[in-house]
Design a protein around this nucleic acid. Sequence first.
DNA 1: TTGCTATATAACTATTCAGGAATATAACCG
DNA 2: CGGTTATATTCCTGAATAGTTATATAGCAA
Lengths: 111, 111
Amino acid sequence: MPRKKSKPMSPGALSLVAARFKVLGEPARLSLLNALMQKDLNVNELVQATGLSQANVSKHLGMLADTGFVSRRRHGLFTVYSIEDQGVYQLCDLMCDSIARRLGNDLREIA
Amino acid sequence: MPRKKSKPMSPGALSLVAARFKVLGEPARLSLLNALMQKDLNVNELVQATGLSQANVSKHLGMLADTGFVSRRRHGLFTVYSIEDQGVYQLCDLMCDSIARRLGNDLREIA
DNA sequence: TTGCTATATAACTATTCAGGAATATAACCG
DNA sequence: CGGTTATATTCCTGAATAGTTATATAGCAA
């Protein structure tokens, strides 16, 4: 039973939305966000939390900041990052729900 | 003021979630989903609705079906697709909200 | 100033992947 | 059966981009 709720998106809105989903679609960036969801962290702490290289972390953080998902503030030598777009919590929760449903459906198909 | 709500995701969960976000992160696929959000459509109708080539549409539909976002049923010669994962409605709504907030913030920064 | 640490950026490489062209498969009709 | 339509798939090429290495910038301390 289809739901047919939301209004259709314009082509412009579509590419904006897609671009934003794509930012969340990289494991490295999602890993950074995941770490920041626990507490604000500086770059070196994020390097240790994720196991990524410093250059790679900085690059992805730059992209996350440019797209407004995180914000940064300097604290002496350090740059501390925090979640800026609180929507990422719900987005990740929803996606996890979606995966849980999918796993349940798959199991049913096998059985 | 940070929120710190969700529990941290395991590396395995992270890559699953990222992979799923990535599926939504392609304009062509999001466009197909957007069309299907209005009503179920067959491949040729989706070709016309999106302006994409038939091969391209079939390929993206295959990926959307493999990941459980859409389902397909054959109807004679036609294959009719429909939204299977109802979560895409909320996901798109949330992302649109996120964009709206971001645009508002940007304007405030300029002013 | 020099030196040190933290972070950002630039240049390069390698991989991923979207799109197109051609072909294959499937389902119907005569 | 052959023919036609609808859809799927295969192969290829080009563009986008993640990751590495090296370097640059920023801030602090002596």
